[in-house]
Computed example of a mutant assay.
Amino acid sequence: MSQYKGIVEVIKPGFYTSVQDLGRPGLGHWGIPISGPMDEQSYLLANHLLQNDPPSACLEMTMTGGTFKFHHQAIIVLTGANGKAHINGKAISINQVVEIAAGHELEIGPFYKGTRMYLGIKGGFKTALSFESRSWYRGLTKYFRCPKGLRIPFEAVAEHSHNNHSKVGIDDSLFENNVLDVYPGPEATEMSNGNFEALFEKSFHLSDLQNRMGIQLSETFKNHLKEILTAPVYPGTVQLTPGGKIIILMKDAQVTGGYPRILQLSPESINILAQKKPKDPIRFRLKEF
């Protein structure tokens, strides 16, 4: 039996909902991806508003929310993407800390701005630890996405908590900005004259081929690069295949790859990209080390 007294039940899990904390950095030599929140800025905001420790686990929802029944009183907040959210039919705002009573349901609909929303809870969700992290990853943890009926533990709060119902404004830059700051990748110098510079002269669009491992762009980019020996890759690494496909690796990406690494996104740009939808335009902007 769990040592935690609070339980939230997943009534409807939504499109893709998972538990994420700050992940597992430093385990690449074991072949273990970093994982963690796709939009780390919104994830950290949730824990900041709740006065949680930064690594406290949240629920990450993609494209659409779900319905969650709280069997015990809790203090929660929603951050990141914007969408309609209700507690027992009463609308609540994004970025506002609220209490939810025992037996009440939180219902979150499709997102109309952004792609990923975070449900934070006072004290964090208390799913099982794996390699000192609660982040879900297929093959490493029992679940990689929320199934219907799952009961997720958390630390129940006192019946009469003193909450200031803090709220902050939405940072629209995550949703409005389509410029991704990047650094040259290890194989950038192998691109032919003018080919590397051409990456920054055009817009690209996100394709439907995307998940927590990576995002493929719709346009192809002609090049004369060859595949490389397997080499380290990280979240934000931009790979260019010999056939011209551009793949941007994200938080659940493998730790090595065999395609040329032409660019590396800044951490802030990973957050921006995580909030984009298929067909959204992006541009690369070069930054120097």
Rank of each mutant, 00 (worst) to 15 (best):
K222D: 13
G139F: 03
K226Y: 05
W30A: 14
L27M: 11
K122F: 01
R24S: 04
L265E: 02
L50K: 09
E155V: 03
I11R: 04
D53W: 01
G169E: 12
I7S: 04
A128V: 12
L286D: 09
K90L: 11
V97W: 06
G124I: 00
A74F: 12
G65H: 11
E219V: 08
N271G: 12
F175A: 04
A46E: 10
K279S: 10
S133F: 10
Y259F: 15
G257I: 08
E9F: 06
N164I: 03
V77N: 05
W136R: 08
Q73N: 08
T256P: 03
N178D: 13
S35A: 14
T62E: 10
E9T: 15
G123D: 12
G169H: 07
F289W: 10
H104N: 15
E40I: 00
L180G: 01
L45A: 06
L240Q: 05
M117E: 01
L78I: 15
F221V: 04
S93Q: 15
P55D: 11
E219A: 02
L225A: 07
K84V: 09
G257C: 06
V233P: 07
R134K: 15
S161V: 05
I121E: 00
S56C: 10
H72D: 08
L49R: 08
F284E: 01
A188G: 09
Q210A: 13
A253N: 10
I32A: 07
Q210W: 09
M1T: 03
E227K: 13
K5N: 10
P13T: 08
L140F: 10
D39N: 11
T127I: 05
T141M: 13
E176G: 02
G244I: 08
E219C: 06
G120E: 05
V97L: 09
S218M: 14
S56T: 00
D280C: 07
R283L: 03
G169W: 02
P186Q: 08
M213R: 06
D208C: 03
V97K: 11
K5P: 00
G83S: 01
E268L: 14
